[in-house]
Write a protein that binds this DNA or RNA. Structure first.
Length: 282
DNA sequence: TTACTCCTGGCC
DNA sequence: GGCCAGGAGTAA
């Protein structure tokens, strides 16, 4: 499941292969993959024709788990990879399979293929501005934004009785964490996922923010985590799986205290933690 | 705050 | 053959 490190890895691969390239044509095999704002009054195919064909991709950037594509003329769209989505650029041809839902044909024969076997991902067209405007309101500050300090972090997520894990997963508060890195960050900080957010003191918030940064940066350095389907822009798997402490390690020894890693349910999500060294507050 | 929906590969 | 995970939007 692509989260911030996976999406950023894809972005780093895509940018040099897409930026300054002209889109020759865009093909969507399914209408429901592309969301066009209601008031744009256009069918996806027509939107694609009008706003991608003949356009030059200016910039590929990212906010949270969204990949953002800006074209010349201040237009753009956002891509969410969902659970199983990938964006891979082929330079010497590749046959789309039944899970390939969109293909951007670019100049020089490069093709951007969007595959999403579970079809949870979406392309979202911006109504009348750059890609960033397509996701405003859906995402809060990016988890790796250098201006996110402890005070802002605490103000955003605190003040709620909800579990800290559900707060970390709320993309409108801080964007980029999914189930894997929420569990890893809470483990790194020694905080139990069921802690009410309102119970954390400033010291714990600081530790948690450091934990988030640390697990995200390590994952990024390893090219992301691949469980099943995640691939980068060249189709390669990520190498971070072996660096996870608790996620996917139910029943194994906690790398910190040696107790058994548990899998519990928090906020409706499968959650991995060590009950011995991730504590609830008094 | 919880539950449902979407969807399919992978697992039992 | 059936069930489940899981992000995000929406409904109850």
């Amino acid at each position: 499941m692509p989260e911030l490190p996976e999406v950023e890895t894809v972005r780093r691969g895509l940018a040099p292969l897409c930026e300054d390239r002209t889109i020759v044509s865009a093909e969507f095999s399914r209408d429901d993959i592309l969301i066009v704002p209601d008031d744009a009054g256009q069918k996806p195919a027509r939107w694609a024709q009008e706003f991608t064909e003949g356009m030059v991709i200016d910039r590929v950037y990212r906010h949270g788990k969204y990949l953002l594509f800006d074209t010349e003329g201040e237009r753009g769209w956002a891509v969410h990879l969902g659970m199983s989505g990938s964006l891979v650029v082929y330079t010497d041809g590749a046959a789309p399979d039944k899970h390939t839902h969109a293909v951007l044909n670019m100049c020089c024969g490069a093709e951007l293929h969007y595959r999403a076997p579970r079809r949870f991902g979406r392309w979202i067209a911006a109504r009348d501005g750059p890609a960033r405007t397509a996701v405003s309101g859906r995402v809060g500050i990016d988890a790796l934004d250098p201006t996110l300090d402890v005070r802002r972090f605490m103000n955003r997520l605190g003040g709620s009785q909800a579990t800290i894990k559900s707060r970390l997963l709320d993309q409108r508060l801080v964007a980029g964490l999914g189930n894997i890195y929420a569990d890893e960050a809470l483990f790194a900080a020694g905080i139990h996922p069921r802690c009410p957010a309102s119970s954390l003191d400033p010291g714990r918030w600081a530790t948690l923010l450091r934990g988030i940064r640390s697990v995200l940066r390590r994952a990024l350095a390893n090219g992301g985590t691949t469980f099943a389907s995640y691939r980068d822009a060249r189709g390669r798997k990520g190498g971070n799986r072996g660096h996870l402490s608790v996620y996917g390690r139910e029943g194994e020894q906690c790398p910190r205290c040696g107790n058994s890693v548990e899998r519990i349910k928090v906020a409706g999500r499968g959650t991995h933690c060590c009950a011995a060294c991730q504590q609830m507050p008094e």
